[in-house]
Write a protein that binds this DNA or RNA. Structure first.
Lengths: 186, 186
DNA sequence: ACAGCCATGTAACTCGTTACATGATTAC
DNA sequence: GTAATCATGTAACGAGTTACATGGCTGT
């Protein structure tokens, strides 16, 4: 009965386990505020595909809000008891794989011998800027959690993860800045 | 003429730009020692597929080492002048995207409300252990570069990237250890 | 009237994986 | 002779993307 879903399905199911009934659109927004920073925020079309699949498996249930004279059927999806059970069992049995990092900046640094050193430095400086932008985004998300982030409250764990992300961005920024210094002195 | 290849193709082409003519098998090993840490090390079959594609595009050239009485054709591939040009032009024109992190441990922490807190701590402790193992692997790779890692030498940039990776693992380890402490005191 | 956001979904496609199939070489 | 490693490739598939198509709702 454990149908071996991809991690992204469990991730979306997990977002639904945080409470509330969400539309696909809202779920995508929640993914943009959470999954984006340490997983991937699936494309809109993917969200709907997953919602259909999870529904078919009865892990979530879509409340139909159909109205007369309208063709479209906006639905709010909510996790089911079976969904919660399946999610818990996945968390308890599937091993947590080592993170996968796809780091285009590091990849380009590896190939530094092919480009003008100035360019490499510029690229790293731009990366520092985008780290700052990302960090700012995540800070906003983290702030929006304040008030419901105490132990036992709904956003406790999400806030821990957000803090982790902020630490990561800070450490990465420092490392890259040291790297820039090092390249300047070559 | 810029045929918009996936990043992984450029990554493999880049590994070939480090010098030497390699077989698919050897290229896979080089990927395991480099790309694995900040990109992905493609499957063996994918390496051969890429080699075929890059060959067809004349970005690399495979020297045929066919011998009589043998059906198999082991080839050593070497980057061509066109390959170097294409790679350089990619490095200079394509923007370096922000890194993508797929972090199953962070994802699970987000869903901490669904599992026994003890289990979450155990998971984080196991993650610290696997970070140590990874770090050890990368350290070995970095050590194997020593001697040819000075400015201007072939492994200068690869060693910078390796150092970056080691810094990352160290910082991540500290962050997770603080997180474990925090969870202990809840 | 129009912009902008809310909302849902299909089709075609690419990337990259696992499973499978095969064979050569080296060391014990 | 047999295990391990070197070596190459094909087939089937899954995950997730972009492009496309459609329509409702709200504010100005």
């Amino acid at each position: 009965m454990s149908q071996e879903l991809p991690t992204t399905s469990f991730a979306l199911l997990g977002l639904l386990s945080l409470g509330d009934a969400l539309t696909g659109y809202e779920l995508k927004q929640r993914a943009d505020n959470t999954l984006r920073f340490y997983w991937v925020s699936p494309a809109m079309s993917q969200v709907y595909t997953e919602l259909t699949r999870l529904s078919r498996l009865r892990l979530i249930k879509g409340a139909d809000t159909r109205r007369p004279g309208h063709r479209r059927t906006p639905r709010r999806y909510r996790i089911t008891a079976k969904g919660t059970r399946t999610l818990k069992s996945w968390l308890e049995t599937a091993p947590a794989d080592f993170p996968v990092l796809k780091h285009p900046v590091a990849l380009r640094l590896l190939l530094g011998h092919l480009v003008d050193p100035e360019r490499t430095i510029t690229m790293l400086e731009e990366y520092v800027e985008s780290l700052a932008a990302r960090s700012k985004d995540l800070h906003q998300v983290r702030d929006s959690l304040a008030g419901a982030d105490a132990v036992g409250q709904p956003y406790h764990y999400p806030s821990l993860v957000a803090d982790w992300g902020l630490d990561y961005y800070a450490a990465e920024t420092e490392t890259v800045q040291r790297l820039i210094e090092r390249l300047h002195h070559e």
